[in-house]
Every structure is written in C-alpha cells, then in structure tokens.
C-alpha cells in the first residue's frame, strides 16, 4: 500500500521552542478514542492551544496569525512518552510535512516516518539559529530536501545536512511501506518458523 511521497519542501515554519514535548501534549489521551486515522489535527496540542472552555489561547503559536507553514520546529527530545501514533497523525493531519528538532524520541521518530512525516534532526546550534531567525522574521522560509539530505534557511543560506535511515528514505521518496517489504520476504518468515 502506498504512503505519501516526500522529496522536498520549502515553506515558512511554526516555532515551538520547548524541550521534552511529550506525546501527551501533542495529543492528550482523552482524544484517542477515535477509531480512524483522520481528524486528530483538530486536537493537536489541545491543552496548550485551547482553554478549558475550548476557546483558542491567543499566545500559543498555532493561534498566532504571524506563524504558518508546513514545518514544525521544536525543542530537544521531541515526541517522548507514549507510543501513540496518534501524535504523528495529529501533526500530519494538522498540515505539517516535517518536524525539526535537535533530538527525537525513538518511537515517535519511527511513527512519523511510517506516516510520511519527516523528522529532521539538526544540531543544537542550528536549531537555535532557526529560532533566532524566525523570531526576527516570522515569515522566514526553510527548505528541506530529503533526496540530498539537507535543511537550509533560505534567506541566510545557512544549511546543515541531516541523517536518515537509507531504507526509510527510499520508502518516503517512493511511497512504499514496511508491510510491502516484509510481505515480499514472506517465504523467509515461514522458513524461520519451521526452524523451531
């Protein structure tokens, strides 16, 4: 089954300079009751974004009109906590194509990659630079190229390369997934079971 294809994007960004953002903040447990993958974007960062009566909190980045774009830039250790894939679904469903941070929690990283959402790990210094530049100009454009594995602040030309598992890169740039791959090796699985 094909997933979304990702090769290259160039867009403004939404900055969230908070560290250790856990999956309970990305999507609180009480919103995990849906049985489909759609619609989680409405509750992305629910308790930071809305007050108890459901009114948008003005000072939260997603509610600030000056910020928009398809890249979320967040502080270190993004996505720690629960294995809920709903976190990746919520971010993608809201309209983000990539998340940039200086460190990602393992399970989140895997979940994101399985959903065509690219986690881009940059150095602490580069992350700091993005926050500074975006702070000075909220319309700053960032370019992410998965094929050549670099991220660039377009206006200043500052850029850095990033790592991505070659297999996962092939999946994302071609739109195929893990199940397709394992199914193509099914006879090996059956043979393994026979080894007992």
């Amino acid at each position: 089954m094909s997933t979304k294809i990702f090769k290259h994007i160039q867009t403004s960004v939404v900055p969230l300079p908070i560290e250790n953002i856990d999956t309970d903040q990305i999507i609180p447990a009480r919103f995990l009751k849906a049985t489909t993958r759609e619609g989680f974007g409405n509750n992305l960062f629910r308790d930071w974004r809305f007050d108890n009566d459901g009114n948008p909190k003005e000072d939260f980045v997603l509610n600030e009109p000056k910020y928009s774009g398809k890249i979320l830039v967040a502080g270190k250790n993004f996505g720690c906590g629960s294995s809920r894939e709903h976190a990746a679904w919520a971010i993608a469903d809201y309209g983000f194509d990539a998340v940039v941070s200086s460190f990602f929690a393992d399970i989140f990283k895997g979940n994101a990659l399985n959903n065509g959402l690219l986690p881009v790990q940059v150095s602490d210094d580069f992350l700091k630079r993005i926050f500074e530049v975006v702070d000075a100009d909220p319309h700053t454009v960032i370019e992410i190229d998965l094929v050549d594995q670099f991220i660039k602040i377009v206006a200043t030309g500052e850029q850095e390369s990033f790592e991505v598992n070659p297999y996962k890169k092939a999946c994302m740039t071609n739109g195929y997934d893990d199940i397709d791959y394992i199914l193509s090796k099914k006879e090996l699985v059956v043979e393994f079971e026979g080894r007992g």
């Binding site: 294995s83 809920r84 894939e85 399970i107 979940n111 399985n114 893990d178 199940i179 699985v189």
Partner: peptide, 20 residues
Amino acid sequence: FGIGTSQVEQVMATQCLLQS
C-alpha cells in the same frame, strides 16, 4: 518494546517487525 499503530498492523500482517 512498544510500537506505533502502523507497526501493529505490520506485526498483525507478518508476525514480524522491521527494526534496526
């Protein structure tokens, strides 16, 4: 270890998991 829902589907379909 814990896995996401796409991987739950993967294990259901193949009894295997792709892991580094």
